[in-house]
Deep mutational scan, measured.
Amino acid sequence: VYKEIAITNGCINRMSKEELRAKLSEFKLETRGVKDVLKKRLKNYYKKQK
């Protein structure tokens, strides 16, 4: 499980701001904020899904 999260986090870290926004809107999450906030939001979402 932790390895999956680590791989997902690595992918998220390599995403551009536009990619992050697209992914967040896909999951109907808030898309406003600076890049670091968007990354954190997406990581938290994936963590809750596990």
Rank of each mutant, 00 (worst) to 15 (best):
11 C>M: 15
15 M>D: 00
6 A>N: 14
7 I>S: 11
28 K>D: 10
47 K>W: 04
46 Y>R: 08
47 K>S: 07
43 K>F: 03
47 K>T: 06
49 Q>V: 09
8 T>W: 05
26 E>P: 00
49 Q>P: 03
24 L>C: 13
45 Y>R: 01
6 A>W: 08
13 N>K: 06
50 K>Q: 11
41 R>T: 00
15 M>V: 07
4 E>I: 08
16 S>W: 00
10 G>M: 11
46 Y>K: 07
8 T>C: 08
44 N>Q: 12
10 G>C: 08
35 K>M: 03
14 R>M: 07
48 K>G: 08
17 K>A: 09
25 S>D: 12
49 Q>T: 12
40 K>L: 04
12 I>Q: 01
42 L>A: 01
39 K>M: 05
32 R>I: 04
30 E>Y: 06
36 D>P: 10
26 E>V: 06
25 S>N: 13
21 R>G: 02
33 G>P: 01
43 K>Y: 03
7 I>Y: 11
40 K>M: 04
42 L>F: 05
48 K>P: 02
33 G>M: 00
50 K>M: 09
35 K>Y: 02
32 R>P: 00
30 E>H: 03
30 E>L: 04
32 R>L: 03
23 K>P: 01
23 K>C: 10
42 L>C: 01
31 T>Q: 10
23 K>Q: 11
8 T>H: 08
19 E>T: 09
18 E>F: 14
15 M>N: 02
12 I>D: 00
9 N>Q: 10
5 I>F: 12
11 C>R: 12
29 L>G: 02
44 N>H: 12
27 F>E: 13
38 L>N: 01
17 K>E: 05
25 S>M: 12
7 I>R: 10
29 L>F: 03
22 A>D: 11
31 T>K: 13
43 K>R: 06
18 E>H: 13
17 K>R: 09
20 L>G: 01
27 F>I: 14
27 F>S: 07
45 Y>G: 01
6 A>C: 10
45 Y>E: 04
13 N>L: 01
33 G>K: 01
18 E>I: 14
45 Y>I: 04
31 T>N: 11
35 K>T: 07
46 Y>G: 05
38 L>Y: 00
24 L>R: 01
30 E>W: 05
30 E>C: 10
16 S>Y: 05
42 L>V: 03
15 M>R: 03
9 N>W: 07
49 Q>Y: 12
22 A>L: 13
29 L>Y: 02
19 E>R: 06
14 R>D: 07
47 K>Y: 05
26 E>D: 11
5 I>Y: 13
44 N>V: 07
16 S>A: 06
38 L>I: 05
35 K>A: 07
37 V>T: 14
46 Y>N: 08
24 L>M: 05
37 V>M: 09
16 S>C: 10
32 R>T: 07
47 K>M: 07
44 N>I: 09
43 K>V: 04
19 E>N: 07
38 L>G: 00
48 K>S: 10
44 N>M: 10
27 F>Y: 14
1 V>P: 05
34 V>T: 15
10 G>D: 10
13 N>T: 03
23 K>Y: 07
49 Q>K: 12
12 I>E: 02
38 L>H: 00
39 K>W: 00
26 E>K: 08
14 R>S: 11
46 Y>H: 09
12 I>N: 04
29 L>T: 01
10 G>W: 06
19 E>F: 02
24 L>H: 03
19 E>L: 05
17 K>F: 04
7 I>H: 10
42 L>D: 01
48 K>Y: 08
36 D>K: 15
25 S>L: 12
27 F>N: 14
10 G>T: 11
5 I>D: 14
33 G>L: 00
46 Y>W: 08
28 K>T: 07
7 I>L: 14
23 K>W: 08
47 K>E: 06
22 A>R: 13
11 C>P: 08
46 Y>V: 15
12 I>P: 03
50 K>L: 13
35 K>C: 04
32 R>E: 04
10 G>E: 10
29 L>M: 09
34 V>H: 15
26 E>Y: 10
16 S>P: 08
16 S>K: 14
29 L>Q: 09
11 C>W: 10
29 L>P: 00
15 M>I: 04
1 V>L: 13
50 K>D: 07
13 N>F: 01
8 T>R: 10
12 I>G: 02
37 V>S: 11
36 D>T: 13
1 V>F: 11
34 V>Q: 08
40 K>V: 04
25 S>E: 11
1 V>W: 11
36 D>F: 08
3 K>I: 07
4 E>W: 08
18 E>C: 15
19 E>P: 00
27 F>P: 01
15 M>Q: 01
38 L>T: 00
10 G>H: 09
31 T>H: 15
17 K>H: 04
20 L>Y: 01
41 R>L: 00
32 R>F: 05
23 K>N: 07
20 L>V: 04
13 N>S: 08
24 L>V: 02
17 K>N: 06
10 G>P: 08
44 N>E: 09
49 Q>I: 12
11 C>I: 14
47 K>P: 01
15 M>G: 00
31 T>I: 11
30 E>N: 10
4 E>T: 13
45 Y>L: 04
6 A>M: 12
26 E>M: 08
5 I>M: 15
47 K>L: 06
34 V>A: 10
7 I>P: 12
44 N>K: 15
10 G>L: 06
31 T>V: 11
5 I>K: 13
24 L>S: 05
22 A>W: 09
44 N>D: 10
39 K>H: 00
19 E>I: 03
4 E>S: 12
8 T>D: 08
44 N>T: 12
42 L>T: 00
8 T>E: 08
6 A>S: 12
3 K>S: 13
3 K>D: 09
48 K>E: 09
45 Y>N: 04
2 Y>K: 15
24 L>G: 00
14 R>K: 15
4 E>Y: 10
42 L>Y: 00
21 R>F: 03
21 R>Y: 03
24 L>F: 04
2 Y>S: 15
24 L>N: 00
28 K>H: 13
9 N>H: 12
23 K>G: 02
5 I>Q: 15
1 V>G: 14
43 K>S: 04
32 R>M: 04
17 K>L: 04
3 K>W: 05
36 D>C: 09
2 Y>V: 14
47 K>I: 06
21 R>V: 09
26 E>F: 10
32 R>A: 06
27 F>W: 05
35 K>H: 03
36 D>H: 14
6 A>E: 12
12 I>V: 10
17 K>C: 11
32 R>V: 05
12 I>L: 06
28 K>W: 02
21 R>P: 03
37 V>P: 00
32 R>G: 06
7 I>W: 08
44 N>P: 03
39 K>V: 09
21 R>D: 02
7 I>K: 11
50 K>V: 12
20 L>H: 01
28 K>V: 02
39 K>S: 05
9 N>V: 12
28 K>C: 11
22 A>V: 13
2 Y>N: 15
15 M>L: 07
35 K>D: 03
39 K>R: 11
40 K>P: 01
35 K>V: 08
50 K>S: 11
1 V>C: 12
49 Q>H: 11
13 N>Q: 04
20 L>C: 01
41 R>Q: 00
1 V>K: 13
48 K>Q: 09
29 L>W: 03
5 I>V: 13
38 L>V: 03
49 Q>G: 07
24 L>A: 03
12 I>Y: 03
26 E>T: 09
